[in-house]
C-alpha cells in the first residue's frame, strides 16, 4: 500500500528528499546517458558504413567507440 498521504510528503521524503532524489536522479541520468551514447555511436556508424557501402572500398575512420 502507498506509504505517503500526499504528493507533497512523497517529494519531501520525510526530510531526506534531497538525498533520495539526488541518488535516483543521478542513477537514471547515468543510465540514460549510457544508453544514448551507445545509440548515438551506432547511428554514426550506420551513416559512415552505409555511405561507404555505396563506395565499396576504403577503410572507415578506425575509432574505438568510447563511452
Amino acid at each position: 500500500m502507498v506509504q505517503f498521504e500526499s504528493w507533497a510528503s512523497f517529494f519531501a521524503m520525510g526530510g531526506h528528499g534531497l538525498y533520495v532524489w539526488l541518488a535516483y536522479g543521478a542513477t537514471f541520468l547515468v543510465l540514460a546517458i549510457s544508453y544514448l551514447s551507445v545509440r548515438g555511436a551506432r547511428k554514426r556508424l550506420q551513416q559512415e558504413l552505409s555511405w561507404l557501402s555505396g563506395e565499396g572500398g576504403g577503410a572507415t575512420q578506425e575509432e574505438e567507440t568510447k563511452l
Binding site: V38, A41, R42, L45, E48, L49, L52, A59, T60, E62, E63, E64, T65
Partner: peptide, 10 residues
C-alpha cells in the same frame, strides 16, 4: 555490436 561493426567494417 558497435565494436563488431568497427572491427569488421571492411
Amino acid at each position: 555490436r558497435n565494436q563488431i561493426l568497427v572491427r569488421e567494417s571492411r
